[in-house]
Deep mutational scan, measured.
Amino acid sequence: TEEVEKIVRELQKRGVSQEEIQRILKRNGIDPRDVEHVVRRLR
């Protein structure tokens, strides 16, 4: 989703690792598959 993408991009800008990003998003109830998808697209 748009929202997830924004969050991921923001965290990446701050130098947060992929694993940490995924952990944060999972904690916020976001589907890990969505996270994977977004992270892969932004690489």
Rank of each mutant, 00 (worst) to 15 (best):
V35L: 06
V39Y: 07
E19W: 13
R23W: 09
I21P: 00
I30W: 13
I24M: 10
G29I: 02
R41Y: 07
R23I: 08
V8Y: 12
E10Y: 13
E2Q: 10
T1Y: 13
D34M: 14
L42G: 05
G29Y: 02
I30T: 04
I24K: 02
Q22W: 14
V38E: 01
I30Q: 02
V8S: 01
E19L: 11
E36N: 03
V8P: 00
D31K: 04
I30V: 12
E20R: 07
E5R: 05
I21E: 00
L11E: 00
H37M: 14
R43K: 09
R40T: 10
R14M: 10
Q18K: 11
L42Y: 03
L25Y: 00
P32W: 08
I24Y: 10
K6L: 07
V8A: 10
R40K: 09
K26T: 13
K13S: 10
H37L: 13
V4C: 14
I30H: 09
H37Q: 13
E10H: 10
K13R: 12
G29P: 02
E3Y: 13
R43Y: 14
L42H: 05
E10I: 12
V8I: 12
G15D: 02
R43L: 15
Q18S: 11
E2D: 11
R9N: 02
G29V: 01
S17Q: 05
E19N: 07
E5T: 06
N28W: 14
Q18T: 14
I24A: 05
R23L: 11
N28A: 14
I24D: 00
E20F: 07
N28P: 03
Q18M: 15
V16E: 04
V4Y: 05
S17H: 06
R40W: 02
K26C: 15
N28D: 08
Q18E: 13
Q22R: 14
P32V: 05
V16Q: 03
I24E: 04
D34L: 15
E10S: 11
E20W: 12
Q12V: 15
E5I: 10
D31Y: 02
I7H: 04
E3K: 10
L25R: 00
K13E: 06
E5V: 10
V16K: 09
V39F: 14
L25V: 01
R27W: 07
T1E: 09
E2W: 12
R40G: 10
D31H: 06
K26H: 10
E5K: 04
R43A: 14
P32I: 06
E2V: 09
V39H: 03
L42Q: 05
E10L: 13
R14F: 10
G15V: 01
V38H: 02
T1L: 14
V16G: 01
T1V: 12
Q18A: 12
V16Y: 13
V4D: 01
G29H: 03
Q18I: 15
E2P: 08
K6P: 02
Q12T: 12
E5M: 13
R14Q: 07
Q22D: 03
E10V: 11
R40S: 09
S17V: 04
T1R: 10
R14W: 11
I30K: 02
S17T: 11
S17P: 08
V39M: 15
E5P: 02
L25N: 00
K6Q: 09
R9W: 06
D34I: 15
R14S: 06
I30P: 01
E3S: 10
V39K: 03
I7E: 03
K26Y: 14
T1M: 13
R9E: 03
R27A: 12
R14P: 01
V38S: 01
E10R: 11
E36T: 03
R14K: 09
E20H: 06
E2K: 11
R33V: 08
N28H: 13
V8F: 12
S17Y: 02
E2Y: 12
R41D: 09
V8H: 00
Q22H: 09
K6F: 09
D31T: 04
L11D: 00
V35G: 01
E19M: 11
L42M: 04
K26F: 14
R27C: 15
P32K: 03
R41Q: 07
L11H: 01
E36S: 04
V35E: 01
E20N: 08
N28Q: 13
Q12D: 04
D34E: 12
D34T: 15
R43S: 12
K6C: 15
K6A: 09
S17R: 06
L25S: 00
K26D: 04
R23K: 08
D31L: 03
P32A: 06
Q12I: 15
N28T: 11
K13V: 06
R14V: 05
R27E: 08
G29R: 02
L25M: 07
E36K: 04
K13M: 11
N28I: 14
Q12H: 14
E5Y: 14
V39P: 01
V38R: 01
I24P: 00
V16P: 00
D34Y: 13
I7W: 12
T1K: 08
R9M: 07
G29K: 03
V4I: 13
R40D: 14
R14D: 04
R23E: 09
R43H: 13
E5H: 05
R14A: 09
V38L: 11
V39R: 06
R40V: 07
D31N: 09
G29N: 05
V4E: 01
I30L: 07
R23S: 09
I24V: 06
I21V: 04
L42N: 04
R40C: 15
E2M: 10
I30D: 01
R33D: 08
R9Y: 06
E5S: 05
G15F: 04
I30A: 05
E10M: 13
K13I: 08
R40L: 03
D31F: 02
H37R: 14
S17A: 06
G29S: 03
E3R: 09
I7V: 08
R14L: 11
R33C: 14
I7M: 13
R43C: 15
H37E: 15
R9I: 07
I21N: 00
L42C: 14
L25Q: 00
E19T: 09
K26M: 14
V38D: 01
I30N: 02
R40Q: 12
I7K: 05
I24L: 11
V35I: 14
R43Q: 14
V39G: 02
K6S: 07
V35Q: 01
R41K: 12
N28C: 15
Q18R: 12
V4A: 04
E10D: 08
D31W: 02
E2R: 11
V8Q: 00
K13C: 14
R14T: 05
R33H: 09
G29L: 03
K13G: 07
R23H: 08
K13N: 08
K6T: 06
R41A: 07
R33G: 05
V16S: 04
R40E: 13
V38Y: 03
Q22T: 12
D34C: 15
V16L: 13
L25E: 00
V16A: 09
L25I: 01
V39A: 03
P32Y: 04
L42I: 13
H37V: 12
I7N: 02
R43V: 12
E19Y: 12
E20G: 06
G15W: 04
E2L: 10
R40N: 14
Q22Y: 15
V16C: 15
E36C: 12
V16R: 07
K6W: 10
L25G: 00
E19V: 09
V39E: 03
R41L: 12
H37I: 14
V39D: 02
D34H: 10
S17M: 04
I7C: 13
P32D: 07
H37W: 13
P32F: 05
V4P: 01
E20T: 07
G29F: 03
R9F: 05
V8T: 02
H37A: 15
R9S: 04
K6Y: 08
L42P: 04
Q12S: 11
Q18D: 14
L25P: 00
N28R: 14
D34R: 08
R33L: 09
R9K: 05
E36W: 11
Q18N: 13
G15R: 05
V4K: 01
L11C: 13
I24H: 05
L11T: 00
E19Q: 11
R27H: 07
S17F: 03
R27Y: 08
K6V: 06
E19R: 11
Q12M: 15
I24R: 06
G29T: 02
K6G: 05
V4S: 02
R33M: 08
E19K: 10
Q12E: 03
L25F: 02
V38T: 03
G15A: 03
P32N: 03
V39W: 06
R23G: 05
D34G: 03
E2F: 12
T1S: 08
K13D: 05
V39Q: 03
V35H: 02
R23M: 10
Q22K: 14
I24W: 11
I7G: 00
K26V: 14
E5L: 11
V38K: 01
R43G: 13
G15H: 07
L11W: 05
K13Y: 07
L11F: 05
K26Q: 11
E20I: 06
R9A: 05
R41E: 07
E19H: 10
Q22C: 14
E5G: 03
D34S: 07
E2N: 09
L42F: 03
E20Q: 08
V16T: 06
E20V: 08
R41V: 04
V38W: 08
